[in-house]
């Protein structure tokens, strides 16, 4: 859970630039998620209490939009596109490589908390397919060699890295 003080401070900042409390919701959920990679029930409840946005509405929004993670993700959250252009360019084989290299299945987190893998819909990068998004960064024109090198690099990176 994120410190309440931090959430409150950011809420006040965003709210002062917004039309009404509800309009802050998407940005606030992005903010909360950025810290830990996912949003907890407690964070959402706290946001509801300070903004006076009914909890039902906060929950409706955080479950509607697919970018909000409601359970723990890895420090490196790998999202691989499964739509047509990426599929034709070899995304399914890349997904298998990731699963093998990290010994996890789609939707899982590695035991050390470093990686998680999820399939996503079109990322709008079809001309440079296949594309993989790790946290907020696009990795385009991926192939087996580039993917393995990237995973190796991320593994070797300081394991204490935070998001």
């Amino acid at each position: 859970m994120m410190s309440e003080e931090k959430i409150k401070k950011e809420y006040e900042r965003i709210e002062s630039l917004s039309k009404n409390p509800q309009s802050t919701l998407l940005a606030m959920l992005h903010f909360i998620q950025k810290e830990k990679g996912f949003i907890t029930e407690q964070d959402a409840e706290y946001l509801s209490s300070i903004s006076k946005i009914p909890y039902s509405k906060v929950k409706a929004v955080m479950t509607f939009y697919t970018m909000y993670n409601l359970k723990k993700t890895g420090i490196h959250h790998i999202q691989i596109c499964r739509n047509l252009s990426c599929h034709m360019a070899g995304a399914p084989a890349l997904k298998k490589i990731i699963e093998n290299e990290l010994s996890i299945k789609e939707g899982e987190v590695t035991p050390d908390g470093l990686f998680s893998l999820t399939e996503v819909e079109c990322l709008g990068s079809c001309g440079t397919a296949p594309v993989i998004m790790i946290n907020e960064t696009y990795h385009e024109n991926m192939n087996e060699e580039k993917l393995k090198a990237l995973l190796k690099e991320l593994k070797e990176k300081n394991e204490n890295t935070t998001r």
Binding site: L26, A27, L29, H30, F64, Y65, T66, M67, Y68, V120, E121, C122
Partner: peptide
């Protein structure tokens, strides 16, 4: 600028 959150 307003960012969406993943919804076609």
């Amino acid at each position: 600028v307003v960012r969406g959150a993943g919804a076609y």
